[in-house]
Design a protein around this nucleic acid. Structure first.
Length: 821
RNA sequence: GCCGGGAUGGCGGAAUUGGUAGACGCGCCGGACUCAAAAUCCGGUGGUGGUGACACCGUGUCGGUUCGACUCCGACUCUCGGUACCA
């Protein structure tokens, strides 16, 4: 018998070359039989593969390989999310050109992915920073512009007054620019938006169709993000008759409790008031300090200033003051809110701070607290008081009645409001897809004609400062107006990189199409299994759901209801931690996947990372546990090598030991199978394989004929079950004890129900819920027989003597609980 | 601030629907093999008390529902992700 030592460093690359040469994982243009599209969120080419990638791609590869063994035609592609900020940062730091830096990173990382033995169809590789890819994004932008789904409006950005540049939220640290250290200001600039709000209801309703297929928490986050709320638009006429202020409220039942209005600092009325009042102007100037992020706005001290303006209450006609307040967002509704301090906690605190009056108009119990005694706002619904004709109505009824009264006076109506805002896709950056628009002094905004696409991003610049070089390059900037021929300028804003990642999954189906998508996309979509980090739960996954509907509505995907959602099933993986915190260069706690590959090989890396935790949980890195995974693979290697060929067929009759071993084999098949398909807890699947290998390893050196046959069956099953996790080792061993069929398309093992059958069942016996005995019974006993048998069992006498049996609970196959007095 | 997760032995985790808490792995302890070591193999391993059979305690905290709670409900603590320009 020859014994080859386990040497993954040579074994794995050899197999990878063979797979490559055979084109083994190449998917056909159209699926042949049942299709399965497995997809990992494609990486940003930062330069080095990190453990989060290894985890993500090991999960998807295991699923893809499993589905191949289930006979599906699998599409499993990989590409690069190649535009973005880090390339510009690297360029500024090292003087490298963003394009060259990006492509050399891709080169390196592709090599690392190949070394992991992932079953990709590399012929479909995409890099989003190539004109072949982003030209279609520009094309779609023009289509959406025609349809009114693209528009420009003012919106706030973080402005670094020293570097004279716009900062990403990430680049603002404690209210200061990360490079300059200058206090950041909010500045309103004209930017491009996609009208995602037009799809708000559809995006919300679509979540119901994903129930059970997507993690519940992701569905909940998306629902809350869209934030549909029913309420009323209420008009407050300005006292001087110059117009109205419109507010949205979900609580029109509290309208009689409104004691003032608050508008955003950017609201035109606030700016008007500031023009004539230095104190107001100073307040508005102060509001411009700080970052634009919601977290920084929401956590700042609530402040406001009276604008010297009054409005009339739409139903009582009372005069109410108008304030400007830093917590009112211009981008939400009309940039104004009505304040009901007695029934809204934020308004309550604001009113107490500035001595504004409170009016209690809702009673939740019999008490009618005076405004002065309130310790906090009464936010629960209740019965109306001090509300004229509406007194005595419950909140729910009053909402409708008051809204109708407003509508009758032409001062409001029922409205549905969304928290979701339109998607601002303008970036004042270089390394992104150019927005295909031209600014003409005569014609205004003019789209680039379709025939002139793509607008190619020049790649020859040396970056010297954070400002986009496009703005200073006449060869890019200067262009004749397509309409009138006059000298005009190109738009220099580029697109948010979330645009690229919103449709790449569809392009993978037809990466060489001469249009954005062709019929192959409909054939492969939707993605059957999508896997990526939970940090993408809202933004990326919502934008992709939005884009999928845009692609459908411009005619690139069928409107058959089956193609509305891009990702049928979603798995959100947890982070990889070391010493309890996220691996990062700044913390110095990174583990380089390359070092693990060099030392232990890909199979060990993959097995460890799938075994260490269930995929959706965070994973704690452990060098020692990696060692353990490697030891397990070596044990399998040795066991198979030591098995004395040939494999023999199962005899008709098995002895007790062989029967027991065979039951273990099939229990393992059952456990692994259910964890591959439904639960996707690969750590449990691997644990089951380890358990089986322990049992197979305990078989005596010279087993009888029946044991030898079952051992062979068990070893074969073990290789098949482990092959999605450790594809190299199992394929090499399969050549020795396999059945001649190729492992990667070999049918997944089936459970033999006969093997699982057992004559006896071991039950736990509890007395008053506490474990007292474990007793064996015939597997065919009825509950009544079991109850009788337990109560009269000699071992039970000491637990039951002198006590009165009140109740006996029999849970078939599990336990018996005897309740005694 | 708001939205959504998480918390189980020394460590990572298991317990599929309310039914044996701690599978599997790591670590540690003991043993076998060896001149010795490494590797490998075998055994033990939640805590407390007891020579022992065994008993009691134990799933972040406090309370509740139930014959029975890691699991369901209420209140809280700590921690992580997102918060619209990191990807």
């Amino acid at each position: 018998m020859t014994y080859t030592p386990y040497h993954p460093q040579s074994l794995e690359p050899a197999l990878q070359q063979r797979w490559e040469a055979e084109g083994r994982f190449r998917a056909p243009a159209y699926p042949d039989g049942e299709k399965f599209y497995a997809l990992a969120m494609f990486p940003y080419p930062s330069g080095q593969l990190h453990m989060g990638h290894v985890r993500n791609y090991s999960i998807v590869d295991a699923i893809a390989r499993y589905q191949r063994m289930r006979g599906k035609t699998v599409l499993h592609p990989m590409g690069w999310d190649a535009f973005g900020l880090p390339a510009e940062n690297a360029a500024l730091k090292n003087g490298s050109a963003p394009a060259a830096w990006t492509f050399s990173n891709i080169e390196h990382m592709r090599g690392q992915l190949r070394r992991l033995g992932l079953s990709y169809d590399w012929s479909r590789e995409i890099a989003t920073c190539t004109p072949d890819y982003y030209r279609w994004e520009q094309w779609l932008f023009l289509k959406l512009y025609e349809r009114g789904l693209v528009y420009q409006k003012l919106s706030a950005v973080n402005w670094d007054p020293v570097d004279q540049t716009v900062l990403a939220n990430e680049q603002v640290v404690d209210g200061r620019g990360w490079r300059s250290g200058a206090l950041v200001e909010r500045r309103e600039i004209r930017q491009w938006f996609l009208r995602i709000s037009a799809y708000a209801d559809e995006l919300l309703a679509g979540l119901d169709s994903l129930q059970g297929q997507w993690p519940e928490q992701v569905l909940a986050m998306q629902r809350n993000w869209i934030g549909r709320s029913e309420g009323a638009e209420i008009h407050f006429p300005l006292a001087d008759g110059s117009g109205v202020i419109k507010v949205f409220s979900t609580r029109p039942d509290t309208l009689f409790g409104a004691t003032y209005l608050a508008v955003a600092p950017e609201h035109p009325l606030a700016e008007q008031a500031a023009a004539a009042n230095a104190q107001i102007a100073a307040f508005l100037a102060r509001c411009k300090q700080g970052a634009v992020s919601e977290a920084s706005l929401e956590t700042q001290e609530k402040e406001g200033v009276y604008l010297g303006i009054e409005v009339r209450h739409p139903l009582t006609g009372a005069l109410l003051p108008v304030w400007a307040a830093n917590f009112v967002l211009m981008g939400y509704g009309e940039g104004a809110v009505m304040s009901v301090p007695a029934h809204d906690q934020r308004d309550f605190e604001f009113a107490r701070k500035y001595g504004l009056p409170l009016r209690v108009v809702i009673r939740v119990d019999d008490a009618d607290p005076g405004a002065d005694e309130l310790q906090a706002a009464i936010t629960a619904p209740g019965t109306l008081i001090h509300s004229a004709d509406f007194d005595g109505l419950p909140s729910a009824v009053a909402k409708v009645a008051i809204t109708e009264a407003l509508a009758a006076k032409g001062l409001g109506q029922k409205t549905i409001n969304y928290r979701l805002r339109d998607w601002g896709i303008s970036r004042q950056r270089y390394w992104g897809t150019p927005i295909p628009m031209i600014h003409c002094p005569h014609c205004g905004v003019v789209p680039v004609p379709e025939a002139e696409l793509p607008v190619v991003l020049p790649t020859h610049y040396q970056l010297h400062d954070p400002r986009s070089p496009l703005r200073d390059d006449p060869t890019f900037l200067e262009v004749a107006c397509p309409k009138c021929g006059a000298a005009a300028q190109r738009e220099t804003d580029t697109m948010d990189t979330f645009v690229e990642s919103s449709w790449y999954y569809a392009r993978f189906a037809c990466p060489d199409a001469e249009q954005m998508l062709d019929q192959r996309a409909a054939a492969w979509l939707p993605v059957d299994q999508y896997v990526g980090g939970v940090e993408h739960a809202v933004l990326h996954l919502l934008y992709a759901r939005f884009f999928n509907r845009l692609l459908r509505d411009v005619g690139l995907l069928p409107k058959d209801g089956a193609h509305d959602e891009p990702f049928r099933r979603l798995l959100t993986q947890g982070m990889v931690l070391k010493d309890g915190s996220k691996m990062s260069k700044s913390k110095g706690n990174t583990v380089d996947p390359q070092a693990i590959l060099d030392r232990y090989g890909a199979d060990t890396a993959r097995l460890f990372i799938l075994f260490a935790a269930p995929p959706e949980q965070s994973l704690e890195w452990s060098d020692q546990a990696v060692e353990g995974a490697h030891r397990f693979l070596q044990r399998i290697w040795r066991m198979v090598q030591e098995y004395s060929l040939p494999l023999t067929p199962l005899p008709v009759r098995l002895g007790p030991a062989a029967r027991e071993l065979r039951r273990a084999v099939h229990q393992c098949i059952e456990r692994v199978s259910s964890n591959m398909a439904e639960r996707q807890h690969f750590n449990v699947a691997i644990a089951a394989c380890m358990e089986l290998s322990n049992q197979l390893g305990r078989v005596e050196a010279a087993p009888g004929e029946d044991l030898h046959a079952v051992l062979g069956e068990g070893l074969q099953a073990l290789l098949l079950l482990l092959s999605p996790f450790a594809p190299h080792l199992t394929e090499a061993l399969w050549e020795r004890i396999g059945d001649g069929q190729a492992l990667f398309t070999h049918p997944w093992p089936e459970v033999d129900a006969e093997a699982l059958r057992s004559d006896t069942v071991s039950l736990v016996i509890q007395v008053n819920g506490k474990l007292r005995e474990r007793l064996d019974f015939s597997a065919t006993s009825s509950p009544a027989e079991l109850e009788q048998a337990v109560l009269t069992h000699p071992d039970m006498a000491r637990h039951l003597s002198g006590k009165e049996v009140r109740k006996v609970i029999v849970v078939p196959g599990r336990l018996i609980n005897i309740v005694v007095a």
